[in-house]
Simulated assay, not measured.
Amino acid sequence: MDKVPALDGKNIGFLGVGAMGSGMCLNLLKKGAKVGFLESKAAKNTELIEAGAVTYSSIAELAGNSTEVILCLPSSVEVMELCLGDIGVVAHIGTGNIIIDTTSSFPAETLKLHEVCKQAGVRLVDAPLTRNPEDARVGRLNCVVGASDEDFAAVKPIFDAYCENVVHAGEVSAGHRIKVLNNALSLSCAAVVSEVCAVARASGADLEKLLELAVLGGANSPQFVGMMRYHLDGDKKALGFGIALAAKDLNYFNIMAEEAGLTTRLSPHTGAYLNDARDSGFGAKTLPALIDFVEPGLKT
């Protein structure tokens, strides 16, 4: 007897079928889920339709036909816009059903949404992601989850469809808190690497030899290697994370620190650095392009 696909019978609505979301949807479909997304006159996602996804004309229709709705959006702003109000997801998804927010959202906003969901009898799970769109397509993302034990068990098979590693961090908003902290670590590394590379190039040092040495010690990380491979090999897929999104995430970290009553010293500089890059026309570029932003500014 053939094995029943892990998500057979699931009706999942998906909001945010961009580079990351499309790959996630393809893996959900492969695991047997019925997946639906919003029609778009601007861009028709024929790949998903050919793979078996259905389209809906409104959020109300999408949410009303889904037992889970997954959000993969730019920020908390878009999450709240699509979830709240008379035409939002919360109003139409149905009592007992689940909203899964994979966006890198701000934890305080997640708690506000959680309160709205509770009043409506809707369950909220936060499950932000790490890694990149290529990993999404091959089902090798990481996610960190904020949910009750019961809700985590209910949605774990969904995460297994597109993730290699799943970490249950605690109750609702715990996933978003850990994601903000993780991004502060990785984005600060990217900022430092961009300055080091700029100084290396200006001083005539061999970047290949720097990479050869650094991977043997404590400076090694996927972030460092990705930055270096972009500049040494022209690998345009390395660290496919936009600078505008990076600036947003560092700003989230700085606000989170302030709300905890802390005055940080290093992260405001990294945040300002990313904000400057975004405002200088680098927002749509990926993190390795930081070196091209910073190098002219270092010249005296």
Score class of each variant (00 low, 15 high):
D235I: 04
A63D: 05
V116K: 09
V294H: 06
N251H: 12
A147H: 12
K44P: 05
V196F: 12
T55Y: 07
L48H: 10
G13L: 05
A260C: 14
N97H: 14
A161G: 11
G96W: 13
V193S: 00
I158M: 06
K285D: 11
T264L: 15
G217A: 11
D235L: 03
C25N: 08
L71I: 05
A219L: 13
G64P: 07
G64Y: 01
A284V: 05
I93S: 09
V199G: 00
D2Q: 12
M1D: 10
N27Q: 08
G85A: 08
C117W: 02
A289K: 01
L129W: 08
T130Q: 08
G21V: 12
E164F: 06
A91K: 13
V180M: 13
N27P: 09
A284M: 05
V35L: 08
M227Y: 01
F224T: 14
D101L: 05
L7Q: 08
M20H: 03
F253G: 05
G121A: 07
K41Y: 04
V225D: 11
E47R: 13
L213N: 06
F14H: 05
V215D: 01
G283T: 12
L181Y: 03
N27C: 07
T102N: 11
V193E: 03
E39K: 15
A153E: 15
T270F: 15
C25L: 03
P288M: 03
T102W: 00
L287E: 07
D86H: 10
A43C: 03
E50H: 10
L298Y: 05
R278I: 00
H176M: 02
S22D: 06
L232C: 04
A277H: 07
P5Y: 07
Q223T: 12
L290M: 14
V79N: 02
N45C: 11
C189N: 15
K237G: 03
V167P: 00
S221P: 04
A284I: 04
P157W: 11
S76H: 12
L274K: 02
V116W: 02
H114L: 10
E134A: 10
D149K: 15
G218S: 14
A184V: 10
K236G: 00
E258G: 14
D86W: 01
E50L: 07
T130L: 04
L250E: 06
D206I: 12
F224Q: 03
G18E: 03
K3W: 00
N142P: 00
G281F: 08
K34L: 08
E134G: 10
L207D: 01
L28K: 09
